[in-house]
Design a protein around this nucleic acid. Structure first.
Length: 315
RNA sequence: CGCGGGGUAGAGCAGUUUGGUAGCUCGUCGGGCUCAUAACCCGGAGGUCGAGGGUUCAAGUCCCUCCCCCGCAA
């Protein structure tokens, strides 16, 4: 088939490669425009664009595909469009261009976890299992008919970043199978059970503020689910401390949530939560690099006063 | 040339403003004390202060160049 692929971050790359190695003709790749990125504001290609360039595939980078990408897409006259974390919403006009429609590789078991960051939200909600779903895109957000899906276990300590890498591969496999079945005309297609749906919004920085009024368990999920981006954090002595890894410990110390129970190179860094206590393992101070919380405390000792007053440490 | 923080002992930091023989916490090694310890006491090793050049009687500290790390914004 003549396929147009749309995707942007790392997550989409395995899917693009899967389409290619399945022998399909990828006649164009749409990806987000190049933007100055990172330190020094250097312009960098998106991972998907990089892959496309390596394979000599024409790249299109409209600011808004439904406005200034329509003509390019129409000119390509694709049989099918495939999207995987493209980052733009397709209009009905765009969806109407490919003969056989548009297939999306979504990183959740639909109709649960619709939205742009399903992997993060699954972990934050404490899910043990998630999955990938291939679906026909329609005008709603992740509301189209389901083609195929495959479950993926969420490992106990797994971060969103790590899980994303695995999901991208599973998604690529599932996509290959879906395309094969579509070609043969044997692909299942069932509408979503909209009564079972859930939708989660885009990630915001503020989501990472650790709220000690929650349980240690919930906070641990939050840290995992927001790693590596946007990251969880709390403030200490006026500085934002990014939290990379923690461990929820059962048992209460009968203190106000937010109280630092201990903080030292030997004792470790433990904070009282609404339920249970949270051992803070890896942190990162402004301008510094990621390090063991105990290493940080060697150079930044907390006074007894700070140790005993709740509220000195908060989101 | 987007904004900013930083590179000092194995680890984390102070010291740089007001140049003058390098310090703290921890680890490590040796010894001691204790039923015991994330405990305590005594002693020791370990640093070309990111690199190069300059100013000076004297540079971690002042000036110039370069390399590397990190955060924000996007």
């Amino acid at each position: 088939m003549r396929i147009v692929f749309m995707g942007t971050p790392e997550y989409g790359v395995p899917s693009l490669k899967a389409i290619l190695s399945a022998g399909h003709e990828v006649i164009g790749v749409f990806t987000q425009p190049d933007k100055p990125k990172g330190r020094g504001n250097k312009v960098e290609f998106s991972p998907v664009k990089q892959c496309a360039v390596e394979h000599g595939i024409p790249v299109f980078q409209p600011k808004r595909i439904r406005v200034d990408g329509v003509e390019d897409l129409r000119a390509l006259a694709p049989d099918l469009c495939v999207t995987a974390a493209f980052g733009q919403i397709l209009s009905e006009e765009v969806l109407g261009i490919p003969r056989f429609g548009t297939v999306n590789v979504h990183a959740s078991l639909l109709p649960k976890y619709r939205g742009s960051s399903p992997i993060n939200w699954c972990i934050m909600q404490g899910e043990k299992v998630t999955g990938v779903t291939t679906m026909m895109t329609d005008k709603g957000i992740d509301t189209g008919d389901i083609l195929m899906s495959r479950a993926v276990d969420i490992l106990p300590e797994e971060t969103a970043g790590e899980l994303t890498v695995r999901m991208a591969d599973v998604g690529a496999e599932l996509l290959a199978e879906t395309l094969a079945k579509l070609e043969k005309g044997t692909c299942p297609r069932v509408p979503q059970d909209h009564t079972q749906m859930s939708y989660f919004p885009m990630l915001k920085k503020e989501l990472g503020a650790l709220n000690w009024q929650k349980s240690a368990e919930a906070l641990a999920n939050c840290v995992r689910g927001l790693s590596p981006w946007p990251g969880a954090y709390f403030t200490l002595q006026g500085e934002i401390i990014k939290v990379w890894s923690v461990a929820a410990v059962a048992g209460d110390a009968d203190k106000t949530p937010g109280t630092v129970l201990c903080a030292g190179p030997k004792e470790g860094f433990v904070v009282q939560c609404a339920e249970g206590t949270l051992c803070i393992k890896e942190i990162q101070a402004p301008g510094g690099k990621r390090m063991d919380a105990r290493d940080y405390l060697r150079g930044h000792p907390l006074t007894t006063k700070e140790l005993e007053s709740a509220g000195n440490i908060n989101g």
